[in-house]
Every structure is written in C-alpha cells, then in structure tokens.
C-alpha cells in the first residue's frame, strides 16, 4: 500500500477512531495521541493489510486496544465532561434554549459515561457510529451474545434513567 491509498482509505476514518478513543479515555488530547499511534501502526503493518477484509473495523480494534492499554496504565475513569468543541447547530435558538439543550446533552453524556466499560463501548459503536452487530463483534473481539447482552443492559439502564428524569424532573 502506498501513501496515497493510505491517505484515501485510512486517514478519513480518523474521526471515528477519535470518537471511540474519546469515549474510552475521556480526554481529547489522549484520544488524539491514540489515533496517531493507530495510524503509525496501520502504516507499519501495511504489508498485511491486503489480507484484512474490513479495514475500518480493524482500525477500530487497534484503537480499542491502545485506548484500553492507556487507560490501564493511567488508572483513571473516563468521566470527564464532553463539553469541548460543543456547538449547537440551530442558530435560531434563544440563549435560554441553548443552555437548556446544552444541559440536556450533558445529562445524557453523564448517563453514558457512567455505564460499565463494555456497555459504553457497545452502545457507542451501535448508536453513535451505526455499526452492525457483526462489525461490533469484530471490533470488540466478543461473541454475538455478549454484544447483545451488553447493548441490552446499556439501553435498559439509560431508559430507566430517562424515565426517572421524566417522572421527577431530575
């Protein structure tokens, strides 16, 4: 693989990799470092790239492994706020509405950040990135059953919290 192919096929995945690393690490600086490391790894291992069917899933898997390595060496939980780079698209909103949306997003973010690691990974890959179950299995190196169980638990927890907010306004 030459650099052009790399630029066209691998580099564009960077934002997906970044979001996933960010979900795991909770720091955009560290997530960026991880994505760079992934890129270097993919480039150095480009000889074996020809044998890989789903290049994107393969990159995601490397991202997961490198992020988890980092997380383990740092011994920290990814519960930092996600407010960096926050931007609301609808420009017709009043400042009050804007703050409200900001708060709501923050609340959902905390809900997801509070999930156990596996559940957080699965719900991110499915509901944010829109991967199929098969791809999630490949990325997380889990079997179908584990993926579905983790997704079910994650969605159930989120649902319960949403119901609570709706009922008590918490």
């Amino acid at each position: 693989m030459n650099y052009e192919t790399f630029e066209n096929r691998v580099l564009p995945v960077k934002n997906k990799l970044f979001r996933f690393a960010f979900r795991l690490l909770g720091s955009s600086e560290e997530a960026k470092d991880v994505v760079q490391e992934v890129m270097i790894k993919v480039w150095n291992g480009r000889e074996q790239m020809a044998t890989i069917e789903n290049m994107e899933a393969w990159c995601m898997r490397i991202t997961k492994n490198l992020s988890l390595d980092r997380l383990r060496s740092n011994q920290r939980r990814a519960t930092d706020s996600l407010t960096e780079g926050f931007e609301i698209r609808q420009e017709t909103l009043t400042p009050h509405e804007r703050t409200e949306i900001h708060e709501n997003m923050q609340r959902v973010n905390e809900m997801i950040a509070a999930l156990p690691e596996k559940q957080r990974q699965v719900i991110h890959l499915r509901d944010v990135e829109g991967y199929s179950y098969n791809e999630i299995c490949e990325i997380l190196e889990l079997d179908m059953n584990q993926v579905k169980v983790n997704l079910f638990r994650a969605r159930t927890t989120v649902r319960e919290k949403l119901v609570k907010i709706n009922a008590y306004g918490l």
Binding site: N15, S28, V35, E84, M105, N109, I112, D127, G130
Partner: peptide, 11 residues
Amino acid sequence: YFEWQKEQKIA
C-alpha cells in the same frame, strides 16, 4: 445526543 456525537471531529 447520538447524532451530535457523530459530528464530533478531531479538533
């Protein structure tokens, strides 16, 4: 939130 997350990019 999911949609908003998908728009996040490397700064």
